[in-house]
Design a protein around this nucleic acid. Structure first.
Lengths: 130, 130
DNA sequence: CTGTATCCTTGAGGATACTG
DNA sequence: CAGTATCCTCAAGGATACAG
């Protein structure tokens, strides 16, 4: 049922939760979806790369969003103990599994926008190796 | 491109906007998606019916959400000049056109939740004629 | 019944500085 | 380079009362 979202933040997994609301919980906020879209390419991306391509996200929001996506099992974090430190992010299998549907959403949006943009499905420009 | 969302609220249609961000603009907020999901049935729903089924939404949020969805061309508002007043809401063709994708999203979510709920795809319980 | 008007609280998100 | 720590702003959202 769509109604009656869980109030408690402790154990929402026990609650009867609408799938749509479950989705909203995972991908809530301003940056989660753009980040997933940006990681949809084959090659893992570094923290700084993601930050640069998103353009106007702060460290706080990026680190927090990545952490939450990781906790949700959408994103994998790989840390290399080098100097300077290097951390790469990529989608997990679970994360990748939503890409086709995300692509459909993007196609719908493009159709709804009714005018051409320079942005392809799933933000292919975001995956460009700049 | 995913980056550089438009700052101006006046004419965002001119901006190069990522489809995903376009989507986020349309369905932003806590209630838009649950409302669309609730209107996915065949029969139009009255204001009070939507309010009752969502359970914990206020008049302000419901009226505002419906108005924005109407402005986005997702929802159609039909007003009958009766006493007491009666207003029915239903999805437009554009609104209906996103249902299949929404259904896929819901299926993904159900798979991701990994445990059974009483909620079917697209919140079928929300459509029950209570 | 279908909303508006008003006021208020909360937290998402941003700015800046700093650290391992 | 990859984040934390802190503080702050602003708008989304809620509560309550009232109107057509």
């Amino acid at each position: 049922m769509c109604a009656k979202n869980s109030q408690e933040t402790t154990q929402p997994s026990e609650e009867l939760l609408c799938p749509i609301r479950y989705l909203l919980n995972i991908f809530s906020g301003k940056w989660k979806l753009p980040i997933v879209c940006m990681l949809s390419g084959e090659t893992p991306l570094r923290y700084s790369t993601i930050k640069r391509r998103l353009g106007d996200i702060t460290n706080v929001m990026l680190a927090q969003s990545l952490k939450e996506l990781e906790a949700a099992g959408i994103v994998h974090r790989e840390q290399y103990n080098e100097v300077p430190p290097r951390v790469e992010y990529r989608l997990t299998e679970k994360g990748k599994s939503i890409l086709p549907t995300l692509g459909q959403l993007a196609e719908w949006a493009i159709g709804a926008m009714q005018n051409e943009t320079t942005c392809g499905v799933l933000c292919t420009k975001c995956q460009s190796t700049t």
